[in-house]
Design a protein around this nucleic acid. Structure first.
Lengths: 323, 323
DNA sequence: CTGAAAGCGCTTACAG
DNA sequence: CTGAAAGCGCTTACAG
């Protein structure tokens, strides 16, 4: 690999001039400038980022910690973040915390060793880590990490939209499958749904479980086992995976969706548009989440970033219908 | 952040000694050694990786390029690679090529700028890139990149296993939904299937499409629209997504699976175990693929790494049955 | 066994 | 407008 020195020799200038041409906006006379550029290109010069980082104490790497990249939502998010970061000349280092606080702490430490420009963290549910460095900007994504500013979907408002949709369709016997209440996401989504239902003066049956398929299926089975006149006519779930579980339970129990039961999810994972019937859900705005998170983490200046709550959109598909 | 200098001052030794204690195995007397270690811990010293990289020209970063992290197979692979790399003290920089040669080239260039220890590349289908640096080891994963050694599932043998399974169940009218034949994966999987069927002296109906749901659904519709006595009784697809498309088509056409139609996929994505009926498929050994890829890319010495073909396993679930 | 010193490739005040 | 020089934090022959 050729270095600034090689380029300088080739162009017949000093290394300082080469550096200025290559990375600085300082005015260098056009003639020299062109010579340097040509030499650099001839020698296929690539700057050594380690040296640059050492000198400037800035590095165009972003750290990203997600609980689990095989979760479609985080995969989406990671893709968007990588794209957005690339647009701004940064590369992303990705690690998985496996939703485990100890692993999370290790991963963060590993990322910090690279002195990244900043860190975007979707905290593990049991996260209790703190950062031991104040020189690196941290942004929480989807789930709050320690006290760093949060970029997240407005879960409560999103859930409200789902509730309003069902109520608008004429449903009166509603059930809600909540996610784990020891997570902010689980709590917020439930709160929004309950609020909207209460406002309509309706009662609501709530069950609590995990965010996964099994949990949704199991709770739905219990909920739907009663005689038809007492069964809910609409079930909203705290995640698409749960909602897909509901769909499976309904099919097993021969309850037609949406004719006898409407189902709403949350997230809009790819699968939501592929199941039968296609799932009505609240889409998380992954692209905007990613944009905001990257923007905040690359902000310079002293001002701490603000929280950003981004609205999710109701996507109406085949799993909901008027009574 | 404190540096070796600070630690040296605190411990009353030279920076060289600190460095030796911290990163070298050179014998340093226990007394000094302990003093250095204590000082480092007191000052919460973290080595500056950029400086170390500049000096040693080695950096504990691995670059990973995948076509699309939202593809469950690559997400699995990325997770495993990150875990394996972490076990060996390395962090992973992940980029998506969006299955596009130009993007791929840009991403590789961005990764190379960080002077990673090595690169693991699952090439885009139209990949034509070459590397302009010979000092960085490259390993191809799943799809060959340029001329670098390949770690991959034995696609042909895997397909053979699927074919043998169906034939063993008594099926005689077989169909195969092939993936794009301009991809090695698509070709290999088809080849293996055809080989096994030919060996059994049976004929085979082959259709070619993309690896996705739609494509599988469409091809299945065409294939299954004939009168029952001429319809295939078993369809194997080049990917799980295609096979799930087949499942959907069959349900729409009221052809019961597995009673009237057996379906086999390839990959064993998470979804394969969640659809109804659960999908019989060839599991890609993601964990071993990741292990081998990381091992090869971290190998030192001159010897170029060898290709590794790893066997996929037939996972029998509910979508296949005897005639 | 320990320390002094050079140097990795770059950037950036500072002179001229 | 251009160059000479210092220095970022580390490692590593080389002396002693």
């Amino acid at each position: 690999m050729s270095t600034v020195k090689d380029v300088a020799r080739e162009a017949g200038v000093s290394v300082g001039t080469v550096s200025k041409v290559l990375s600085n906006n300082t005015t260098v006379k056009t003639a020299l400038r062109d010579r340097v550029l040509k030499a650099a290109s001839d020698l296929n010069y690539r700057p050594n980022m380690a040296a640059r980082a050492l000198r400037t104490n800035k590095i165009n790497i972003l750290g990203l910690v997600v609980p689990d990249i095989t979760n479609p939502f985080f995969a989406q998010l990671a893709l968007r973040i990588e794209t957005e970061a690339a647009d701004r000349g940064h590369t992303v280092m990705l690690t998985n915390s496996h939703d485990d606080a100890a692993t999370e702490e290790r991963q963060i430490a590993a990322l910090l060793e690279q002195s990244p420009r900043g860190l975007i963290i979707a905290a593990s549910n049991d996260s209790s880590a703190r950062l031991h460095r104040s020189d690196i900007r941290v942004v929480s994504l989807d789930r709050r990490f320690h006290s760093s500013p949060l970029v997240s979907t407005d879960h409560a408002k999103g859930s409200e939209r789902g509730a309003a949709h069902l109520i608008g369709l004429g449903h009166r016997r509603l059930a809600y499958l909540a996610g784990p209440q020891n997570t902010e996401v689980g709590r917020q989504r439930r709160l929004g749904f309950e609020r909207c239902v209460a406002r309509a003066g309706l009662s609501l049956e709530v069950r609590e479980g995990l965010f996964d398929y099994e949990s949704g299926e199991q709770m739905a089975r219990a909920l739907l086992s009663g005689p038809a006149p007492q069964r809910p006519t609409a079930i909203a779930a705290a995640s698409d995976q749960m909602a897909i579980g509901v769909l499976r339970a309904a099919r097993d129990m021969e309850i037609p969706v949406p004719e006898a039961l409407s189902v709403v999810g949350f997230d809009d994972i790819t699968l939501a548009a592929l199941v039968v019937p296609r799932l009505t859900t609240i889409a998380q705005p992954t692209e905007r989440l990613a944009k905001e998170a990257v923007r905040r983490v690359l902000m310079d200046g002293e001002a701490p970033a603000q929280d950003a709550l981004i609205q999710g959109e109701l996507v109406i598909r085949g799993s909901t219908a008027a009574l």
